[in-house]
Design a protein around this nucleic acid. Sequence first.
DNA 1: TTGTTTTATTGCAATATTACGATAAAGAAA
DNA 2: TTTCTTTATCGTAATATTGCAATAAAACAA
Lengths: 108, 108
Amino acid sequence: MGLTKTDNFTTEQNELAAFAKALGHPARVAIIEYLSSQASCICGSIVDAIPLAQATVSQHLKELKNAGLIQGNIEGNSICYCLNPEKWKKFKQMLEPTFTHIEQPVCC
Amino acid sequence: MGLTKTDNFTTEQNELAAFAKALGHPARVAIIEYLSSQASCICGSIVDAIPLAQATVSQHLKELKNAGLIQGNIEGNSICYCLNPEKWKKFKQMLEPTFTHIEQPVCC
DNA sequence: TTGTTTTATTGCAATATTACGATAAAGAAA
DNA sequence: TTTCTTTATCGTAATATTGCAATAAAACAA
């Protein structure tokens, strides 16, 4: 198969899964870490910072953009990428119940 | 290809990616949400709660277990699954820099 | 105009994931 | 013992992901 049965789950569950999936590759983790530590975020800098070919980095940027975790703004000749604060807030908020739960483990 | 170049990234980046990837499917999100809201966590209850075949749920449980996000303890005839608090704390801690960064967006 | 820079897209091969029926394995119950 | 219950694994088919070279597209520079 290889086809996720998204209809069986809630919109929220699918959205959280999409956020997590977008972060589920070390190159994309590296991109997010880079954007979390930089004021500037020109695409070319990201390509230089990630040890993969330009085409591959572009593809990873596209996936992060599709998930909404980053956004890109045209800046003359190049593109300025940055984190999307609202989506990250939603991501964080959706993880909260579990982060809270593990403070008082009850089982096993 | 289809083969992630893990050697190009740090151990931490790979670990965060592995956590996120494990959560990157709505069925696994549903399992985690279930375990975050339940004291009991018998495998059979999870299978009943997830709208997929037993074999498929078992496979998803295995992936969450491999990532370390859950653990299973044999309990007589069945298996008691629960969250692994330490791994979740690490997951949370690795996301903190980004969660902090989005409080003061600086770009775009 | 032509050329350069920057980023995205296409096409492809290799590998991974998803889903499920069938079956196996191991303990509980009879 | 046999049977039932519970969970894991195998085998398979369909689809998705990863990576890169080559190329396209779009804006700037000369």
